[in-house]
Design a binder for these strands. Structure first.
Ligand SMILES: [Zn+2]
Length: 286
DNA sequence: ACACCGTCCTGCGTGC
DNA sequence: TGCACGCAGGACGGTG
């Protein structure tokens, strides 16, 4: 599912390809995916220009020439696919056997540009959304996010402070966007593995050294995943013919029953924690 | 104030 | 072969 590295990857693609393009028309096929008034959504976007694509956590933020912003959240199964002639820039959720015809039955919103290119917003489970906000509303939305990994504000000091006076589990804290922005179920499991910490460990029981390792894990794993252009679970290839290659670096997620790649003794188990599939090595994670 | 759980949704895998 | 059911999970709202 799209987490920080996957959203960052599509952000870069869209910023390169469609920043500066004028929107000719917008087609909303499923109103559920638009937060707020669909009529207003279409009215604001038609004739508008995408100036710049930014990101906060897993939230994509497109600055519009009108001064407003288009917020895009892909949740678990959202995809953004930009098609210009034979060129295809895709990002977000991908899976084996997906339908690459566009639009397909999961296409809910389509942007058409004057140069004939199109941007498709697909979402199998329809949990994702698009939303128009003003500058003021954007500021309000951004206040909900915690420290942003891969930025200067993501310091060890700030990270350690987050762990003070928390009683929840290590994984739940890592995934809480109010405190740390951008980690989802996959990368939270990977960070816990990196730090040799069981995802269920209560925060008060964590040592200083373990918190530091969790911090390093966030930095190392997310940086590596962005460099690999995210994790994809299919053979998808983008315009440059490269695959999102992080899947081969995953150590625990989706590896239930496999021998641990670190200690070579444990077997990766999958449990349910907080209603989410949670993976770890019972041998080398404490 | 904080922790936790149900909810939204569709397609796929499993078992009878 | 067909059908019912469980599972996948981000973020929000309600509950304790
Ligand atoms: Zn191990």
């Amino acid at each position: 599912m799209p987490e920080l590295p996957e959203v960052e990857t599509i952000r870069r693609g869209l910023d390169n390809q469609i920043a500066g393009l004028r929107i000719k028309s917008v087609q909303v096929k499923k109103a559920r995916l638009v937060k707020g008034s669909v009529k207003k959504f279409i009215a604001v976007l038609t004739g508008n220009v995408f100036l710049k694509f930014n990101r906060r956590g897993k939230l994509l933020i497109a600055a519009l020439k009108s001064g407003q912003f288009l917020l895009i959240h892909l949740k678990m199964t959202g995809q953004l696919i930009y098609q210009h002639g034979r060129q295809l820039i895709a990002g977000g959720h991908s899976f084996v056997g997906m339908d690459w015809r566009l639009p397909n039955r999961h296409t809910h919103i389509i942007f058409s540009f004057r140069n004939g290119s199109r941007l498709f917003f697909n979402d199998l489970r329809q949990f994702g959304y698009m939303k128009i906000v003003s500058k003021i509303e954007l500021e309000k939305e951004l206040k909900k996010f915690g420290i942003e990994p891969l930025t200067a504000g993501f310091s060890l000091k700030n990270f350690v402070e987050i762990f003070a006076n928390k009683k929840t589990s290590a994984k739940a804290l890592l995934m809480n966007q109010k405190f740390i922005a951008g980690l989802g179920n996959i990368y939270a499991d990977e960070v816990c593995f990196y730090a040799k910490v069981k995802p269920s460990r209560r925060v008060p029981s964590l040592t200083e050294g373990e918190i530091k390792k969790l911090y390093q894990g966030c930095r190392v794993i997310l940086a590596k995943a962005v460099k690999a252009r995210g994790t994809t679970f299919s053979d998808y290839v983008d315009a440059d013919g490269r695959q999102g290659g992080f899947i081969k670096f995953l150590k625990v997620y989706g590896r239930k029953g496999e021998k641990c790649r670190r200690c070579r003794r444990g077997v990766i188990v999958k449990i349910k924690q907080g209603g989410r599939g949670t993976h770890f090595c019972p041998q080398c994670q404490q």
